[in-house]
Computed example of a mutant assay.
Amino acid sequence: MSRLRVVIADDHPVVRTGMRALLSRDESFEIVGESSTVPETVRVVAEEQPSVLVLDLTMAGRSSLPSIPDLLAASPGTRILILTMQEDPAFARAALRIGAAGYLLKEAAAEELLGAARQVAQGGTYLQPAMGARLAVSDAGAPGADGDASLTARELQVLSLLALGHTNQEVARRLFVSVRTVETHRARVRDKLGTETRAELIAAARERGLLG
């Protein structure tokens, strides 16, 4: 049986060492790379084409969420498992919607991490049960949840970049699209969420866990 190739992305060396030791105990996993920043993670994933990327939600003060479409574009066969300390269900909702296959808190037991990595590698989705319960409660009580579901992965990415202060031209360069395309996505986000000002964009992005 071929081993599952894994890349570990976390900006804390101790955490990476611990995950490497844990995953290496299981012969079904092979650690093929590590990274500590978002740009480095994109590069390593593109080079290694891993089965699974274990991705911290925030690295070096930067949210990893907006990079998920880029990571999937760089390695379409890679399944992304978020491993984080962020307990807010908005982060889990945003991560899964934008392309992650799993969401797990760092407080999880070792066996749960191994099981989650296997499950996403096999094409499944994994959401930590405790987080799933919080997400269900949040969805039931959030009046804006239905409208949020209408945002596409690309629209979420554009929203996060705009909220971080990038201009339409800068967003276009980062996403390798035309300025007109960015303007179209921005107009759709504005219509769906009712955002007009930069402050409203930032608030909308923060509510969806896009700013780390």
Rank of each mutant, 00 (worst) to 15 (best):
L211W: 06
E87H: 07
G209Y: 02
V171M: 14
E155V: 01
L57G: 02
T78S: 15
A60I: 11
E47M: 06
A187S: 13
S75K: 03
S178Y: 11
E196A: 10
L193Y: 00
Q119V: 09
V7D: 01
R174M: 10
V120K: 02
V32L: 05
Q157W: 02
E30R: 12
D10G: 08
M131E: 13
P39E: 02
T152F: 10
R93T: 10
Y103W: 09
S64Y: 00
R134W: 13
R186G: 05
Y103H: 05
T84L: 06
V42R: 00
E27F: 06
D88Y: 03
D139R: 15
M85L: 15
R25H: 12
G115C: 05
A90D: 15
R43A: 14
T125N: 09
K106S: 03
S75V: 02
E107L: 07
L53T: 08
V179C: 04
R188L: 08
T197A: 07
L156V: 02
A94E: 07
S51H: 14
A109L: 07
G124I: 08
G144P: 00
L22T: 01
E34P: 00
D148M: 04
A204G: 04
S64H: 01
G132Q: 12
L53I: 13
R62W: 07
R206G: 09
V189H: 06
A95R: 00
A142W: 10
V158Q: 04
R206L: 14
S28Q: 15
P129A: 07
V158T: 06
R174F: 04
V38I: 15
G132A: 15
I8H: 01
A74Y: 02
P89H: 13
Q169I: 09
E27R: 13
T41D: 02
E48T: 08
S36Y: 11
L83G: 06
A60E: 15
V45N: 07
